[in-house]
Amino acid sequence: ASGAQVQFDEAVGGAAGSGFTLDQRIAAFEQTLQHMPKPTIPGTLEVRLPAVVAGDTTVRDVRLSAEPVEGGWSVKSLAATLPGRTTLEADGMLSVEDHFGFSGS
């Protein structure tokens, strides 16, 4: 999937994203991932978005390649530019069903 800007305000509690603490932002991200439907057929999910907006935060240049697996997602690659031009890159296992967690790089 390729697209333009995506806004997640409604997914994380309306416009209340403004002024969230880091803990609140992580909790909202966790809740969003736990409610995201997982495909029932095998394959790879590829997402490329120039911007994702959640409340008062904009994450830029989001790129994700992942496959659904039992208990969560096998993340082949994730890259994004966070506020302050911090680069986030990851690959590994994202657990979302029994508990929220990440194991990988």
Rank of each mutant, 00 (worst) to 15 (best):
Ala4Phe: 09
Glu70Tyr: 07
Thr40Tyr: 12
Arg60His: 14
Glu30Ser: 09
Lys76Glu: 10
Ser77Gln: 10
Ala79Thr: 15
Val59Leu: 05
Gly3Tyr: 08
Phe8Ile: 12
Ser77Gly: 10
Asp9Gln: 05
Arg48Ala: 12
Arg60Gly: 02
Ala15Val: 09
Val59Asn: 01
Thr40Cys: 12
Leu78Trp: 02
Leu78Gln: 04
Ile26Asn: 04
Pro37Leu: 05
Thr32Ile: 11
Gly55Arg: 02
Arg48Leu: 08
Ser2Tyr: 14
Ala54Glu: 01
Ala11Glu: 10
Arg63Met: 08
Ser74Gln: 15
Pro39Gln: 06
Gln34Lys: 15
Gly14Leu: 03
Ala27Thr: 07
Ile26Trp: 09
Leu78Ala: 12
Ile41Asn: 13
Ser74Lys: 15
Asp9Val: 06
Phe8Trp: 13
Phe20Trp: 10
Glu10Ile: 02
Thr58Pro: 08
Asp9Phe: 08
Ala54Tyr: 03
Asp23Lys: 09
Asp56Phe: 07
Gln5Phe: 09
Ala15Phe: 04
Ser2Leu: 11
Ile26His: 08
Asp56Ile: 05
His35Met: 13
Asp23Trp: 08
Ala54Gly: 05
Asp23Gly: 13
His35Trp: 12
Ala80Arg: 05
Ala80Phe: 01
Ile41Cys: 12
Thr81Phe: 07
Phe29Arg: 01
Arg48Asp: 11
Ile26Thr: 06
Gly55Leu: 01
Val47Glu: 00
Leu33Phe: 11
Leu45Ser: 09
Ala80Cys: 03
Ser77Trp: 00
Gly17Trp: 00
Asp9His: 05
Ile26Lys: 09
Gly17His: 00
Ala28Lys: 07
Asp56Cys: 05
Ala16Pro: 01
Pro39Asn: 03
Asp56Arg: 04
Leu49Val: 07
Gln7Val: 15
Ser18Ile: 13
Gly17Tyr: 01
Val75Ala: 05
Gly43Tyr: 08
Gln7Pro: 08
Leu33Thr: 06
Gly84Phe: 02
Gly71Met: 05
Met36Trp: 15
Gly13Trp: 07
Pro68Lys: 12
Asp23Val: 11
Phe20Ser: 02
Lys38Val: 14
Gly71His: 05
Thr58Cys: 06
Gln5Pro: 06
Asp61Ile: 02
Glu46Asn: 12
Phe8Lys: 04
Ala51Lys: 14
Glu30Phe: 03
Thr57Glu: 11
Lys76Tyr: 04
Met36Cys: 13
Ala11Pro: 01
Ser65Met: 13
Ile26Ala: 07
Arg48Met: 06
Arg60Leu: 11
Phe8Leu: 15
Ala54Asp: 03
Thr21Met: 03
Asp23His: 05
Ala51Gly: 06
Glu46Gln: 12
His35Arg: 15
